[in-house]
Design a binder for these strands. Sequence first.
DNA 1: ATAGTCTTCTAGATCGTTCTAGTCGAACCA
DNA 2: TGGTTCGACTAGAACGATCTAGAAGACTAT
Lengths: 332, 332
Amino acid sequence: MSELQRRPTLMDVAEVAGVSRALVSIVMRGAPGAAESTRQRVLEAARQLGYRADSRARLLRSSRTKLLGLIFSSSQPFHSEIVDAAYAEASARGYEIALSAVASGRPEARAIETLLDVGAEALIIIAPTLSADDLAQHARQVPVVSLLRDNVGDLVDSVSSDDYAGIAIAVDHLVSLGHSRIVHVDGGAAVSSDRRRETYRSEMIRHGLQPVVVPGGPGEEDGMGAGQILQENLPTAVIAFNDRSALGIMENFRAAGIRIPEDVSVLGYDDSHFAKLSFVQLSSVSQDAPLLAAAAVGRAVDRIEGAKSPGSVVRTPHLVLRKTTTRAPAGN
Amino acid sequence: MSELQRRPTLMDVAEVAGVSRALVSIVMRGAPGAAESTRQRVLEAARQLGYRADSRARLLRSSRTKLLGLIFSSSQPFHSEIVDAAYAEASARGYEIALSAVASGRPEARAIETLLDVGAEALIIIAPTLSADDLAQHARQVPVVSLLRDNVGDLVDSVSSDDYAGIAIAVDHLVSLGHSRIVHVDGGAAVSSDRRRETYRSEMIRHGLQPVVVPGGPGEEDGMGAGQILQENLPTAVIAFNDRSALGIMENFRAAGIRIPEDVSVLGYDDSHFAKLSFVQLSSVSQDAPLLAAAAVGRAVDRIEGAKSPGSVVRTPHLVLRKTTTRAPAGN
DNA sequence: ATAGTCTTCTAGATCGTTCTAGTCGAACCA
DNA sequence: TGGTTCGACTAGAACGATCTAGAAGACTAT
């Protein structure tokens, strides 16, 4: 069995190249202050030894890790899309991302600790459930960016999607298709469920319509249950809290022989991977994960690199129309 | 605006507790050699200051981080289930997990580097796509455990599910229900697709049946496409490469008015979150994510803590019967 | 009393970097 | 000529932990 070999250090390279440690350091990180000829000699020595900087030592000294902590929930597919996009943006800005998941038996606080342990310079938390106070607590140590939630106090940055606008365009769209009996299946205890519900209510009233809210939740089964309730007095259109819930609603309708969109239009929220599938073709409000992720990474980097005051970025979502919404059936 | 305060160091704690740095170090890592009374005093001081050990400094000196690197693919829901379970097991064994995702534009090699940079003591890679040689290369630096793939050379540990057994029980089950025209929709270029396909072939032959393979892939759309082909000459049962593919197949059938399981039985693989949904009830081969995750974490920890030789653990999957499989229709 | 053993604690070296504050010539300037 | 500036380079102190060696005091054994 081959030994785990000790990796070469700056000192080793310095000896081979016949210069000091410090100079090798200068050359390795491309800093100015070395003659071109020696630079080449050092690089050659490094190559020959297979030298790779020990990031732990480097970071210990410079207290820079170029690491962004990202906290997501492993059970939310939409979060995965954000993670993907965040990687791209971070790497474009010269940062790496350290991930930590919130899972069953692993609360947000624990995820935060892990990320601080590995040296994250800022924290991006997707849909944080901690109280504004707790978040502020952490924000005293490192910049914290809340993604998809904006009522987080003024020590914490936030990047969110405009839920008012999202629900408003959803209602507008359905109204413009002639719907008047539009029901909202809410997200129960999920982050931003309250706001979407209330916005739905006021938008309906603004249009002179009667708001009806059916309790739901963020998962497929929640939608399934809501579908059952909806059947008792079928509306012509449903705005679901998210795509997963919409799926449950649609499955419930399908089982009962209710046609979509002929009998009921269904609108999702998130425009997730799932909504795009050819056999789903769910019309949905897109929060545009890549843009949100990019904005969050951008804020985090800006804060790390000196921006003093936290701020909040709000992006306007847009509607992606597919095949689950259509004109209201005649006679409604 | 309040300053971002410097995080407290051993020295700070030592001053507050009125002891030396070294003693604080002893207390913090629970090493023997401190009187109970001082231990309490130090712990209290640490708590009060909110002290957290700096893992970089610790690693630099001792090369212990108690950190396990876990690499998964953000687009695979099944991987998320493993991640969940891995967290639980790792924390039970006193380790933390550092995650790194493989995403578009972010190859496995990059994910590995990130994890080594934050100081992972071992790497667990879910369904690695790197060559056995490349994996062996990394295995010279840290223990590497391959999860869900076992042909990884003998420098790398592997924890996998027995694909032979999995497909065999799938075929056995369908045969015992009287099916003879059983088709396999394969996983295309996905890891372990080849093995499942070949096992399917030999199991069919063993039962004196004619194997038929339809090309597929790991996603819903792949299953959708395969469904189209299957319709041309409908079998009585289909074994899909995984649950996502099974979903696509079922949707295609449903659109064509083909009933499941009355007309065709469909069997998935992975027993994912999705298969369990009340309106899906997909019969599936379960690889038991929690057990696999626990085994992988176990191997990684064992290797870190001294086990010399890499080994491979193979777990036998089992069938989870729900509502998509039934007796073969009469006359087939 | 002397030596030996424990227990509890500490000083100082060390890990592999980066950073600060120089040194040492050579070139430049008036 | 003597002073300043500049470029190339280096010694040694950080960074925040762990580890080794050993000191100080209490206790035991002879």
